[in-house]
Design a protein around this nucleic acid. Structure first.
Length: 786
DNA sequence: GCGCCCCTCATACCC
DNA sequence: ACGGGTATGAGGGGCGCG
């Protein structure tokens, strides 16, 4: 018998000392199935030192193994390590838990260089070796199970063969459940030991929106949630911040009531897993917050902000509920319905956001080979690494161990000094995927690097400028093959998409796929320079940026030869006058001489530069303002400062003279003094990047955080603190108050004028020789209230 | 005690 | 826990001044 399985989740366990793998998925008839594979065995390698043969080490290995568990030894002669053929002993075990401890012991035997792949997760090896990907289809021969398995699925089977990847068009329809909770706290952050969950709202893609309310306690609420999940039987459970907040809270509350939070398909409970996330066996628990980083335009990553930006926050009619208000709303029978509406709305928003982000998550999981619930919480480096491990398997390359290394800095890209002032009709020319293409064309990879003392290999080498690192020309290395595959697949996806209407159902999937491919393509260079990477290689990273600097330098020279004035440039781009004939010739010459593609990107009808690098603003042909690096583009300036700067820029770039902008600033300052600028536009948001105790200086946002803590609020690393500056004397940090605890009358408006509005406006007006003095309100008029 | 200088710390951006 | 390059503001210490 055969089954075709779309892989949703993979778990493993040890039964009677033997590891087994559980494949949870959906078959091509839409049934939820579990396939148990007892055939795949844990293993690791012992790498033999050079000029050491199997015969001279095997007896020692066997001797050490005797008192240990049964192990099968295999001689591997087809493996490579960093591109060099090696001999390795493969030790195959029964129990994955035994491999790590014995690998360390055996690596000390003379003639053994090191142990390898003992530090790769068992389930990862399973997927990689079988070339099976999560969120993709596989085919497997199955037998009936001799004993019943306690799993909440339509069928449980035993694998009779290893699974084989197969190409089936569409994924099966998934049952999705999104939820959110509201906890009651009379003071500060709710504590699970003390404060109940008062509302749990959920929304499903079957169209149901439901909530459960606490009565005397939240026990019935939790029981109702468990019952609902088991009845609806979702494949995907999603939420916003559920890995850090909702799940841990629910688990603690359930524990206090003596309840088992049985919501998975294995009759067990959610538990913390490798990347600190919560795993729900047999389902995919997806925390959408983990994908918020993919949307850099959203600075303060609340659910509402994400949803608004992605266009899924339909009903904005209701006033948002602040954490501070929850207790009062719950306690007031007249207000409680508002809280319930808010809760339901939140769950619906999470579901809507899931629809937007899930395709990307599925494609990323499938591309890099991490299970759906792992791929979100896994950092970019680990996503990239998993993709590389899959490539390595195909090339018979052994996976290097994770080791601690010292950090040694190296030089990056070139940034040109801009020509300050207003420029008209400017085009931006960009290299397409500069670093990936450099690595591809020069065969830059950890396994093609020729060490300083080594002689040139027969294939010849390419030599990086400045740093002089050498890379053998052939055969293609691990990175090279990975990038070739990524770059060609993205091209193909783009071509297919071009032939489809964006409304075509396939289009969304292809677009999600190409985004996933792009993310990993762009991450490979950074991965190479990350000291935590298994395939870390400083020469690779350093050579890549050196070729990049050479490339941009030559491009500038070619532009000048063609009579094009270079106004600015950063790493892989140059800004020149928009002269079609000359830029066309430049693109051709760059392609011919450098073998890299440079493309016309944006055109600015007018663009303004200050003296500073990485900061400019321009008008696009459709009239939109594009702001780069300036305060408008930053999350740590007040909305007030950003609004003013944005208006000043629009007026400046359209009028090309400073009169109207100056008048606008004056007008805005008057409104500020009359308290007509909304209070929330005067809040400053800053991220806590470490625990409060580790700060070496007192800063406004750390002191505001301290005040929040005193009032019972929890703050963790990566939380944003919103504060305002109040009147009084002394340091700013003494006057920085969490915005919830202050009011308009207490604000130091002079600070907002002098340190927010005026600098951000002046920054862009300085190019027109406007002084900050000219932007201030005349002293006689509208004096500041004291 | 205050203003000034210079340096460090901290954050967030660009590519 | 992917890279380096860059701008900017506030804190903090040292110094001279009154």
């Amino acid at each position: 018998m055969k089954t075709r399985l779309w892989l949703l989740d993979i778990t493993d366990r040890v039964v009677d000392g033997v590891s087994e793998t559980h494949l949870w998925g959906i078959d091509d008839a839409g049934r939820r199935v579990l396939v148990i594979d007892r055939r795949f065995r844990p293993y690791f390698y012992l790498l033999l030192a050079e000029n050491v043969d199997f015969a001279s080490v095997t007896p020692d290995v066997k001797k050490k193994l005797t008192p240990l568990l049964p192990v099968t030894l295999k001689q591997e002669t087809k493996k490579q390590f960093f591109g060099r053929p090696v001999n390795a002993l493969k030790l195959v075990y029964d129990n994955a838990e035994d491999t790590v401890s014995t690998s360390r012991l055996l690596a000390k035997i003379p003639g053994i260089k090191t142990s390898l792949e003992h530090d790769v997760r068992f389930s990862s090896k399973y997927l990689i070796d079988n070339e099976v990907n999560p969120c993709g289809w596989c085919e497997v021969d199955i037998d009936e199970l001799e004993h019943a398995e306690d799993a909440q699925v339509d069928a449980v089977y035993l694998a009779a063969t290893p699974p084989k990847p197969i190409d089936l068009e569409a994924r099966p329809p998934l049952r999705i459940l999104s939820f959110s909770t509201i906890c009651y706290s009379s003071r500060g952050t709710p504590r699970p030991e003390r404060d109940p969950i008062v509302i749990l709202s959920l929304a499903t893609n079957a169209g149901d929106v439901t909530h459960f309310m606490a009565e005397d306690s939240d026990q019935a609420l939790i029981e109702a949630f468990i019952a609902y999940i088991n009845a609806f039987d979702p494949d995907v459970i999603s939420g916003y911040g559920i890995n850090t907040s909702n799940w841990p809270y629910l688990l603690k509350r359930a524990q206090l009531h003596g309840l088992a939070l049985q919501v998975d398909r294995a009759q067990s409970e959610p538990h913390r897993s490798v990347y600190g996330h919560i795993a729900v066996a047999g389902r995919a628990n997806v925390d959408l917050y983990d994908f918020a980083d993919e949307v850099p335009d959203v600075k303060v990553k609340t659910l509402a902000n994400m949803a608004r930006y992605l266009g899924v926050l339909k009903a904005e009619n209701q006033t948002p509920v602040e954490d501070l208000e929850v207790a009062a709303l719950w306690d007031d029978p007249a207000q409680r319905p508002r809280l319930l509406t808010h809760a339901d709305h939140t769950a619906q928003t999470v579901l809507a956001l899931t629809h937007v982000l899930l395709d990307f998550a599925l494609q990323l999981a499938n591309l890099v080979g991490l299970p759906l619930d792992h791929v979100g919480p896994a950092a970019v480096g680990f996503r990239t690494e998993n993709y590389l491990m899959k490539q390595a398997h195909r090339l018979h390359e052994l996976v290097p161990r994770r080791t601690r290394r010292p950090y040694v800095p190296y030089a990056g890209g070139t940034v040109l000094k801009p020509k300050p002032g207003l420029h008209e009709n400017v085009i931006v020319l960009d290299f397409t995927s500069m670093y990936p293409n450099i690595m591809l064309t020069q065969n830059v990879s950890p396994d093609t690097y020729v060490p300083k003392e080594a002689a040139d290999p027969p294939s010849g080498v390419s030599v990086a400028p400045e740093v002089k690192h050498r890379f053998r020309r052939s055969p293609p290395g691990l990175y090279t093959q990975a990038l070739a595959s990524l770059l060609t697949s993205r091209d193909a996806l783009k071509r297919t998409m071009a032939g489809l209407s964006p409304s075509h159902p396939e289009y969304r999937v292809l677009d999600a796929r190409q985004s996933a491919v792009k993310v990993i393509t762009n991450a490979v260079y950074g991965y190479a320079g990350w000291v935590g990477a298994r395939w870390y290689s400083r020469p690779v990273a350093e050579a890549t940026t050196a070729w990049g600097r050479y490339t941009i330098k030559r491009t500038i020279a070619l532009a000048r030869e063609l009579g094009l004035d270079v106004i600015y440039g950063d790493t892989d781009s140059i800004f020149v006058q928009h002269d079609e004939a000359r830029t066309d010739r430049l693109l051709q010459r760059v392609q011919d001489e450098l073998g890299l593609e440079i493309r016309a990107d944006k055109v600015y009808t007018s663009v303004l530069f200050t003296e500073a690098k990485k900061r400019y603003a321009g008008l696009l042909p459709d009239g939109r303002l594009d702001v780069v690096g300036l305060e408008v583009a930053r999350g740590d300036w007040t909305e007030a400062a950003k609004t003013v700067q944005e208006q000043v820029l629009i007026l400046l770039l359209t009028e090309k003279s400073p009169e109207k902008p100056i008048a606008f600033v004056h007008h805005y300052l008057q409104r500020l003094r009359r308290q007509e600028v909304p209070y929330r536009d005067l809040v400053i948001w800053k991220t806590l990047t470490k625990p409060l105790a580790q700060y070496k200086v007192r800063a406004p946002h750390t002191e505001a955080a301290r005040r929040l803590l005193e009032q019972g609020w929890d703050l963790t690393v990566d939380d944003k603190v919103g504060y305002v500056i109040t009147k009084g004397s002394g340091r700013l940090y003494e006057r920085a108050i969490p915005y919830q605890f202050s009011s308009y009358d207490e604000l130091d408006l002079a600070y907002y004028e002098a340190k927010q509005i005026l600098p951000s406006a002046h920054r862009v007006l300085a190019a027109f020789d406007v002084s900050e003095e000219q932007l201030r309100l005349p002293a006689s008029r509208n004096p500041l209230p004291t």
